[in-house]
Amino acid sequence: MRPRPAFDGPEPGGRRPEPGGKRLEDVMEAVSRGDKDAFSLIYDAVSSTVFGIVVKVVRDRAQSEEVAQEVMIDLWRQAARYRPEQGSVMTWAATIAHRRAVDRVRSAQAAANRDQAGAIRDRQTSFDEVSEQVETRLESEQVRRCMAALTELQRQAVTLAYYRGLTYREVAESLQAPLPTIKTRMRDGLIRLRDCMGVTT
């Protein structure tokens, strides 16, 4: 399939005239036989309309360009499924565009919901058995003395987690350190606190 340029959005005047006076339905029939030149004509005829539909649903221009390209790929791959008696090529393209756009929005929302649920789980889940033991023994003077014995990264990580309620991921972002490193330092720091504070297992 001939590569096409990125979408620049709908052009003034709305729908373009059908290519060379041919009916788009006839051109689509040629596309269904693998005619790449025919597909170029279809692309030029419907791409602006497709983009316009997508951007109204998705809102984000960059994502809309991606979705619009996916729609055009669908038109190429599914050309043999097109049935003129069920509607015009433009209507068919518009239907695919709207479905793709809605799918992208739903997918983005589902991803946001998963991230939010994960953050809630992170906050609700205790770090481990050691952290629970330490948390029950937070006498201020003893804690300050024991915290001073930690490394700088351990002390910062534990402080952010316990006194500011951040998750592992949020601590890693705040300290600009890899998540696995934060998890390791956090656990080592909690073990040192446990030993320093005399918490027994």
Rank of each mutant, 00 (worst) to 15 (best):
V58C: 02
G87I: 00
E66C: 09
S32G: 14
D74Y: 03
Q63E: 12
A62F: 13
V102G: 08
R77A: 13
D128A: 13
T136V: 13
R33H: 14
G20V: 05
A68T: 07
E25Q: 02
Q86I: 12
S48D: 08
S32M: 08
A111E: 15
D37N: 04
E85A: 11
G14A: 01
F51D: 00
V50F: 06
H98M: 10
W92M: 04
D44F: 12
D8Y: 10
Q124L: 15
R16M: 06
K36F: 15
D74S: 04
G9P: 02
P17S: 06
A117L: 14
Q133F: 13
T95G: 12
K56Y: 10
E129W: 07
S47D: 01
D26G: 12
E132P: 07
R100A: 06
F127V: 14
A94T: 09
F39E: 01
V102M: 12
A119T: 10
A108V: 14
P17L: 04
L24P: 04
R15V: 11
I73N: 10
S126W: 10
A79Q: 05
R61Q: 12
G34M: 13
Y82G: 02
E129I: 13
A30G: 09
R33W: 09
G118H: 14
R121P: 08
A112E: 12
S88C: 07
V130W: 01
S64K: 05
I42S: 03
I120C: 08
W76M: 11
A38C: 03
E132R: 11
K22G: 07
T49D: 05
W76A: 05
E65K: 05
A30T: 14
E66N: 12
T91W: 07
Q78K: 10
G87E: 01
F51K: 01
D8C: 04
F7I: 06
E65R: 06
R15F: 09
P84I: 11
I120P: 06
M90T: 13
Q133N: 11
A112S: 11
Q124T: 11
R23M: 15
S88I: 00
V55M: 04
E70P: 02
E65N: 06
V134L: 06
W76R: 07
A111D: 11
V71F: 03
V27Y: 08
